[in-house]
Amino acid sequence: MPTNALDVSDLTVAYKEKPVLWDIDLTVPPAVLLAVIGPNGAGKTTLIKSILGLIPTVAGSVRIYGRPYKEQRKQVAYVPQRGTVDWDFPTSVLDVVTMGLYGTLGWLKRPGKKEKKLAMEALEMVAMQDYAHRQISQLSGGQQQRVFLARALVQQAEIYFMDEPFQGVDAMTEKAILRLLKDLRSAGKTVIVVHHDLQTVPEYFDWVTLLNTRLVANGPMEEVFTEANLEKAYGGRFMQLKATARALP
């Protein structure tokens, strides 16, 4: 049996008083492009953050390629939501991308020529090489998103966690980012993406995790992305989203 890219078992997470994720069991095979979907407040961001150890968990365990997360950090790349950092910070695009290499650099060592070159290559992959020396506050939302993607690419990871990478980008950029994600999958990487637009889910992804505090469903697109499951995840709100049902397979 091939190892799963991600094994989450019995994951329960609570902020201060409130349980946000209950007893989540999740297995994801390697080399899939997975969409995590669910209504606002469903716990999508929380799921990713708790898998990455950014939020303490009440119970449960996480395995990446069969081994505990702590041993596998080098295999993991993370693209946080764009709004989580200060884009007026005095630093350049190239510098931000280079931060993706701090993990392999380790303590005290400075990024040198080699790191700069790797970062440049990552920037080329997202077509941002011309912006390398720009200050990050001079970027548009879509460009910021691509910089974050480049920072994840430079990590050379096996599994990618991305929180709403399509948020606030134009159609062109969306296509470009999608192309990139599909390339990653073709190269055998696992890509886990929090996504909001139900219409595009079947077109973009091949694996779906439906979440609403608890796990509603998890599996290949055709099996899981059904009206019944969506209704379960979105509840009453699904009625309003019914228009999107036309896009269902």
Partner: peptide, 22 residues
């Protein structure tokens, strides 16, 4: 000077630093 890189990481994107094991 010694921890320049680490302090920069902390100031810009703390969570990202955590995921890299710092």
């Amino acid at each position: 000077f010694l921890f320049w890189k680490e302090f920069k990481l902390l100031s810009f994107d703390r969570d990202f630093g955590t995921t890299m094991g710092y």
